[in-house]
Design a protein around this nucleic acid. Structure first.
Length: 151
DNA sequence: TAGGCCATCTGGTCCT
DNA sequence: AGGACCAGATGGCCTA
């Protein structure tokens, strides 16, 4: 397949499908198939669960043997799986929210997770830099307030 | 068909 | 004890 390089859009620029920025943060990685074709769509959690039901039971082999696990253990595991699934769904929602505020081209191009994070990093960095230059201050003065959990 | 991305399961560890 | 978080494993989907 085509060599992938994490798209690292130029700071402050909308992301253009195939554009690459070799000087970007952490180098190399994924590429450009998805930019060109937004075919991959994130399934809604419910839809995902339903659609993936089949493979949900896939296992890692050994400890999988039914009967080895007590009913209580099994039940606890299932609950843990459920929480983990939810946790990941929340994480993905947050990622979607982040995607939604990042400019891309075309508009409906979907950034991968790693691309989203790297782009957001660049974007924030560039924005801070821009404000710094406009205000004549130092970048440190423009650092966002630290995140306060629960605030 | 290979390789990238993703969702899910799982067991370990840490925290409350 | 139970939940949150994490990383590894697995297999499906998709594109070049």
């Amino acid at each position: 397949m085509a060599p992938q390089s994490d798209r690292s859009p130029d700071e402050g620029q909308p992301y253009f499908g195939g554009a690459e920025d070799p000087s970007s943060v952490a180098g190399g990685g994924s590429a450009g198939s998805r930019g060109a074709s937004p075919a991959r769509t994130t399934l809604a959690p419910r839809e995902t669960a339903a659609r993936r039901k089949g493979k949900a039971r896939r296992g890692r082999g050994k400890a999988r043997n039914e009967g080895l696990l007590s009913k209580q253990k099994r039940s606890r595991r299932m609950k843990a799986n459920d929480r983990e699934r939810n946790r990941m769904h929340h994480l993905n929602s947050a990622l979607d929210a982040l995607r939604s505020v990042l400019p891309t081209f075309p508009d409906d191009a979907k950034l991968t997770k790693i691309e989203t994070l790297r782009f957001a990093h660049n974007y924030i960095w560039a924005y801070r830099d821009l404000r710094c230059h406009m205000s004549g201050g130092s970048a440190e003065q423009l650092l966002p307030r630290p995140y306060l959990p629960g605030a």
